[in-house]
Amino acid sequence: MSTAWLPLAATITSLSNFAREMVTSPFAWAVVLAFIGAWLLLPKGPRRGRRLGIAVSLASLALFGWIAPRIGGWLDGSVFLAMSALTIVAALATVTSRDPVYSAIWFGVVLLGTSSLFLYQGAQFLGVATVVVYAGAILVTFLFVLMLAQPEGHAYYDRISWEACVSAGTAAVFVGLMVGTVTRSFEAGSSQKPLQTAAVSAADRATGILHEEHVATLGARIYSQQLVAVEAAGVLLLAALVGAVAIVEQGKKTPAAPAGQSSLGGSSNA
């Protein structure tokens, strides 16, 4: 009779051990704080708890920075931390701004942050291309459309979210799973040994990915190995151009919204 309770007791012990480990682990706290901060920051009608949300999100970010492994000396480490903190804070501001124009401008800051992260890894061409193509062309197109299509004041649908709690939970669980996998799979006792032994020597890198003539080498690669892919991308761009023009031309044939409903109203008849 008494032995039947043993598995249950073992389960309870392991569960309490797990709970103790979770309560004392900075990683679990980082994920929980990320969830609470994102939930507080998302627009939910009345403006309450934004400052608390900012504080909680920054605390979560600091915890993530704490559990991440240190890189290089203090100068390297602090430059990297500044760039990644800028990127992540701007990303959070992009998705939580009530004004879509501010969202677009914060997204520009995200692009500058990612471009600096690319440069830090020696990807010079990508750093420049991100600023030129993304911030210079795509983001400006977004702003054009926003200016064309934005009604006066803050719209109802900018001040409310779809299920803020569930969305924040999904994102926090995703980030927690990814960060947990990344931090644990490289630990000494883990089964992911091949990744650590696959490291390349510094001399190989200097003639490879960190070549002095970076852009020339990248160009030679892209126009020899990836020539077919370049052609396919060109066809894709042409198809997208034709498609965008076709959508606009077809849309002109259908009647626009009544003048009272649409802020474009009379001006879109041209």
Binding site: A91, T94, T114, V145, D158
Partner: peptide, 26 residues
Amino acid sequence: QNYLIVGAIVFGIGLLGFLARRNLIV
């Protein structure tokens, strides 16, 4: 590892925005 963590967080924030926001452009 650091870059993978930053990439995962940026992806997660984008996921949050895509799930939660209602403005099509956002």
